Computed example of a mutant assay.
Amino acid sequence: MKWFQTVALGLSILVTTGCASTSNQQWLYPPMAVPLQASMQQEVQIARLSQLLTRPDLSDELRAKMLFERGNYYDSVGLRDLARLDYSQSLQLNPSQSDLFNALGVYYTQVGEFDAAYEAFDSTLDLNPDNSFAVRNRAIALYYGDRIDLAIEDIDSHLADDPSDPFRALWAYLIKLEKDPLTARQDLLSMYQQRDNQWGWVLVAISLGEVSDEQAFKAIIAGTRDNTVLAQRLTEAYFYLGKRYQHEGNLVSAISMYKLAISFNVYEYVEHRYSFLELKRIFTQIKADQIAKAKLDAPTQP
């Protein structure tokens, strides 16, 4: 989910099916959407801004704004290193841009530069203490940086501001799984039972296993005929399904889900971004396990 967007979807399909068995439903082919491509508007805007930025008569304030805007367009088509360069140049001209620090923090989280991410989110909140998305993003960065206690403090504060937000509830659950899985599940289940019709509660149902995978994907596919929306929802669904599989120890299925989440090119969504990070963490874990096993299996010297 891009942290500025909420999509509503009726949960009638899930409600009418009731609480399904938690056993996984297998499908012959996974539900898919056509991967998103850069639009003509995005390409034209990048070209237009690039041309305008060559003008020598731009004020620093205007140049900083245009660099930030072009960086956002670069980011939306997956050119994240170019986006980071534009963000950095924009900050040099105008360091008082809270949203830009937030964007940089997400970038640093994705590439595993957690100290830089913390500093970026701290700068966002120094400039704009009311930026709740920066609090959530910092909590996620702390979670991936294995600073779970601090992550819980941030995500609890974020959730308290709006307990009806399924994405706040879901990330609170994922973070607290690291400390107390039973309580984390009970808390999320309690919020799920009081749900409204926001789309994100489908993702909560997937994470809890309250509906089968088959029922969840039927609800997603029935909810829209727009390919862009379908790609966005499948990106989210595969990411959180991957998190569930990973927590269950089913790394093979988790890897498949993260790769599917990446496949739709929904570059702006954190679920697309953090799928790369999750894959890296899994491969690092597998490599460490293999090295440890090799040491145990190695013959001892006489």
Rank of each mutant, 00 (worst) to 15 (best):
residue 1 M to Q: 10
residue 4 F to L: 09
residue 4 F to Y: 07
residue 5 Q to S: 11
residue 10 G to E: 07
residue 12 S to D: 15
residue 15 V to K: 11
residue 19 C to N: 13
residue 20 A to V: 03
residue 23 S to L: 11
residue 25 Q to L: 03
residue 26 Q to Y: 04
residue 27 W to C: 03
residue 27 W to I: 09
residue 28 L to C: 10
residue 33 A to C: 03
residue 34 V to Y: 00
residue 34 V to I: 10
residue 36 L to C: 01
residue 36 L to I: 04
residue 40 M to Y: 00
residue 42 Q to W: 01
residue 42 Q to C: 04
residue 44 V to L: 01
residue 45 Q to W: 04
residue 46 I to L: 08
residue 47 A to P: 05
residue 47 A to W: 00
residue 54 T to H: 12
residue 54 T to D: 09
residue 57 D to F: 09
residue 58 L to R: 02
residue 61 E to W: 07
residue 65 K to N: 13
residue 72 N to F: 02
residue 72 N to W: 02
residue 76 S to G: 04
residue 79 L to T: 00
residue 80 R to Q: 06
residue 82 L to Y: 13
residue 85 L to M: 08
residue 85 L to R: 10
residue 86 D to R: 00
residue 88 S to P: 01
residue 88 S to K: 11
residue 90 S to L: 02
residue 92 Q to P: 02
residue 94 N to R: 05
residue 95 P to N: 13
residue 98 S to K: 04
residue 99 D to K: 08
residue 103 A to P: 00
residue 105 G to C: 04
residue 105 G to K: 05
residue 109 T to F: 02
residue 111 V to I: 14
residue 112 G to F: 00
residue 116 A to V: 13
residue 117 A to N: 02
residue 119 E to V: 12
residue 119 E to A: 13
residue 123 S to M: 09
residue 123 S to A: 14
residue 134 A to W: 06
residue 134 A to S: 08
residue 142 L to G: 07
residue 145 G to S: 05
residue 148 I to N: 13
residue 149 D to R: 10
residue 150 L to T: 05
residue 158 H to R: 06
residue 160 A to S: 15
residue 161 D to A: 15
residue 162 D to W: 06
residue 162 D to M: 03
residue 174 L to H: 12
residue 178 E to G: 02
residue 180 D to K: 14
residue 181 P to E: 01
residue 184 A to H: 08
residue 185 R to N: 08
residue 188 L to D: 14
residue 193 Q to P: 03
residue 197 N to D: 15
residue 199 W to F: 14
residue 200 G to R: 03
residue 203 L to G: 11
residue 204 V to Q: 12
residue 206 I to M: 15
residue 207 S to H: 08
residue 207 S to E: 14
residue 212 S to R: 11
residue 212 S to T: 15
residue 213 D to K: 11
residue 220 I to E: 03
residue 221 I to G: 01
residue 222 A to R: 11
residue 222 A to W: 12
residue 223 G to M: 06
residue 224 T to K: 12
residue 227 N to H: 07
residue 228 T to N: 09
residue 228 T to Y: 04
residue 230 L to C: 03
residue 234 L to Q: 02
residue 235 T to C: 03
residue 235 T to R: 00
residue 248 E to R: 13
residue 252 V to G: 07
residue 253 S to K: 14
residue 257 M to R: 06
residue 257 M to T: 01
residue 259 K to F: 00
residue 264 F to D: 00
residue 268 E to A: 10
residue 270 V to I: 09
residue 270 V to T: 11
residue 273 R to L: 06
residue 281 R to N: 15
residue 282 I to D: 12
residue 282 I to G: 10
residue 287 K to A: 14
residue 291 I to M: 10
residue 299 P to R: 09
residue 299 P to C: 11
residue 300 T to Q: 15
residue 300 T to H: 13
residue 301 Q to I: 13
residue 302 P to F: 05
residue 302 P to S: 12
